[in-house]
Amino acid sequence: MKKTIGFFFQLLLLIGLSFTVLSCRHEGKTMKPSSTGKPSEIVVVSENNLWKSSAGDSIRAFFSRPVPGLPQPEPFYKLVQIKEDEFGRLLKIHRNVLIITIDSALAKPQAELRRDIWASPQRVVKISSPTIEGIKEIFAERSSEILNLYDNAEIERLQALYSKSLNLKASESIKKVFNLDMNIPADYYVAVQKDNFIWLRRETNVMSQGLLIYSYPYTDTVAFNPLKIKSVRNQFTQLFIPGPSDSSYMVIADEFIIPQSRTITLKEEPAIEMRGLWEVRKDFMGGPFINYTFVDKKNNLVIGLDGYVYAPNEPKYDYLKQVQAILLSFKFTEN
């Protein structure tokens, strides 16, 4: 009898320990520390000689390129290089990590793109190769994919932050007018609302951010022509976005810098992304904007989602990325 009781006691203890281990493993997936680091920053883990080589040159040149559509040159990402033996616990939880290493045991170069290894949210890229030339080749081959990985992560972080405090009334107005669900942060307010146009603003002591949403009937694919996109945006801003002086208004500034456009996919539908500069006619205000134009097939409407920044004497790329994150939070309503 005592042996039977002892056996069942041991069995229950073993089962309890098993559940504890499984629970800890499960919790380990969700209990990773929050990532750290500044926006638009990447920690590069590389030995000094490798970072000073032509491979390091090509990586620095790629990420330090000026972002299109800004009034002053700003890089896509700031790179902070450290050696492998300096890559300790504190730096492993950085939001963006790029590891570059020479590995003579490899048969060919390889690039690994991972997420949430040591922290959350986090993006980690590891590029390995038996030679320096191999690192250059694999990076050139996958550089656009790597940039998108980091960019999308920055957008996701901002969207998660904004979702904690929303202007529900503004979101409801957008849903009612455009049949779109969009998360509008609480510090934005509706400045103008018309039947097919909404202007939302955020004002601080050092800068202004604005969101424009507008629509018009879809007739043909000319809606995706950059000249058409420019013309429509100018029509709406001339009507509804006044400047500080009498008869002044916002327009696209393209006398010296032509807006850049590219075809992308949004919510599984084709769209045009346009980046450029805006100005206020008859005044001295201006800054960068980003615009997304696509078709709401269900309602046969062209939708324009637009964000702009006014921040004199301040870097503007991170501010522009903030309005971009808000615009890209949109979803088509199911009703």
Rank of each mutant, 00 (worst) to 15 (best):
I272L: 13
I198V: 15
E334Q: 14
V206D: 13
T4G: 01
I213L: 14
V280T: 13
Y317S: 15
C24D: 04
S173T: 11
M250G: 02
S54E: 14
L12V: 13
I241F: 11
G210M: 10
I117A: 06
P33R: 00
D283Q: 09
V222F: 12
K164S: 10
G69Q: 07
P39E: 13
M1Q: 05
G134K: 12
M31V: 02
W118P: 03
W278M: 05
Y310V: 04
F87N: 08
S129K: 12
T30Q: 05
I100E: 03
F178C: 02
K83C: 08
E273I: 03
L239M: 15
R281Q: 07
V21R: 01
I290Y: 01
E27C: 01
L320N: 07
L277F: 03
I42Q: 05
L212T: 04
I146H: 04
T293L: 00
V124E: 11
R142F: 09
S35T: 05
L166C: 05
Q122E: 12
L106I: 10
P33D: 06
N313L: 12
K52W: 02
F178M: 03
E141Q: 15
T30I: 11
R25W: 14
L180G: 04
S231C: 02
E156M: 12
V280H: 02
W118Q: 06
L17K: 04
Q235V: 07
S143D: 10
N48T: 15
A119W: 08
T36P: 02
E203K: 10
S163Q: 15
R89H: 14
R123V: 13
Q260W: 00
C24T: 08
Q10L: 14
F284R: 00
I99P: 00
Y214S: 14
H26D: 08
S245Y: 06
A55M: 05
P312E: 08
T36D: 12
L277C: 03
K175E: 11
N225Q: 11
S23M: 11
L158D: 01
P39C: 00
A111F: 01
I99G: 02
